[in-house]
């Protein structure tokens, strides 16, 4: 009699999923997963208990192409030449996917368009752009991301020659390697697990913007001299002490790094040992742990990073021969 049964009655067994326990709450069923549904029925007929099973429905979950990009910078990043913007790129689809990453400096409203130096993927996962990171050309393909996985992407931007205090936006665009399109666009046969790929709500691409504020600083050194002669006057006679003062004026905004002030001892004078001072505090003449050093030939003081508006001063004495 089974030969005469309609095909769809043929009892199927071996459902892929037994659903014996409460399933875990996944973000999304992985692409390629087979959904399988079978119903069974029990009944009594003519005093006897019987069971019957339905056909088993099986179909594949296709790959959803979705991505989310977000800026990780809480505030505009100050740039005095180059700046690093930080973004996260998250695969919000349900299959492994790589994304083409493109930084766009020409965002509407920008007072000027900075130069994109390069992109970098935070390969070592420390959240900081450093030597361990993989350099990626602008418009290059990022790493393959599992569903729900994200990667940190750095955009290195050059703002050289830009005026001080300008704010510019940089957009980072991520596009699914498989393709992009309006939600629902199907890429036949290109899905993970043998199925199709379908553009999700994001259209399989997303972008976010990060901001840079330029900060340009300039340094001016002002040098002055005061003479004290041995007789209580200010005549530059032999034996008189000349006190040189060098003021480093940093203007603009931001700061300058590694500022070093050096000067030579003028001819026909001799450095007065132990006279070197930074902001009124004595420095030893030896090249040691403190910021300064001095010798018969000249002085040098390492000021390090100096913020705009700070005006550190260095003084030293020479004796006229």
């Amino acid at each position: 009699m089974s030969l005469l049964r309609p095909v769809w009655v043929a009892a199927a067994s071996g459902a892929f999923f037994a659903a014996a326990t409460v399933p875990a709450h996944a973000e999304g069923v992985r692409a390629g997963t087979i959904i399988s549904n079978t119903a069974t029925a029990s009944y009594e007929s003519g005093g006897a208990g019987r069971t019957v099973q339905s056909n088993t429905l099986e179909f594949r979950v296709d790959e959803l192409l979705d991505v989310a990009v977000a800026s990780q910078d809480g505030a505009p990043v100050a740039s005095s030449g180059q700046a690093t913007l930080t973004f996260s790129v998250t695969n919000t689809g349900n299959g492994p996917e790589a994304f083409v990453l493109t930084a766009d400096p020409a965002v509407a409203g920008n007072p000027f368009n900075p130069t994109i130096v390069t992109l970098a993927v935070d390969s070592n996962g420390n959240g900081i752009y450093d030597e361990g990171d993989q350099i990626l050309a602008n418009g290059g393909l990022g790493p393959l991301l599992d569903p729900d996985a994200s990667v940190t992407v750095f955009v290195i931007v050059d703002t050289e020659n830009a005026p001080d205090g300008q704010t510019v936006q940089i957009a980072l665009l991520a596009e699914a390697q498989t393709g992009t399109g309006t939600p629902g666009t199907v890429f036949a046969g290109q899905g993970e697990g043998g199925g199709d790929a379908v553009a999700g709500a994001s259209g399989a691409d997303d972008q976010a913007q990060g901001a840079i504020v330029t900060s340009v600083s300039a340094v001016a050194l002002l040098k002055s001299a005061a003479v004290a002669d041995p007789f209580g006057g200010s005549e530059p006679v032999p034996g008189a002490i000349v006190t040189f003062t060098i003021v480093a004026q940093v203007s603009g905004s931001g700061s300058v790094a590694n500022l070093r002030v050096a000067d030579e001892i003028p001819a026909s004078t001799s450095y007065r040992a132990g006279s070197l001072q930074l902001n009124g505090a004595p420095l030893t003449d030896a090249a040691d742990a403190d910021a300064g050093q001095a010798s018969a030939s000249g002085i040098a003081v390492q000021l390090g990073t100096v913020a705009a508006g700070e005006n550190p001063n260095v003084t030293f004495d020479v004796i006229i021969d």
């Binding site: 999923f17 959904i35 399988s36 069974t40 029990s42 007929s45 003519g46």
Partner: peptide
């Protein structure tokens, strides 16, 4: 199709894991 009434007819359907 039994040709007679059936009683206590119970359909059971396990939900596939992939759906809720």
């Amino acid at each position: 199709n039994t040709g007679q009434p059936v009683e206590n007819f119970v359909i059971t359907n396990p939900l596939p894991d992939a759906v809720q």
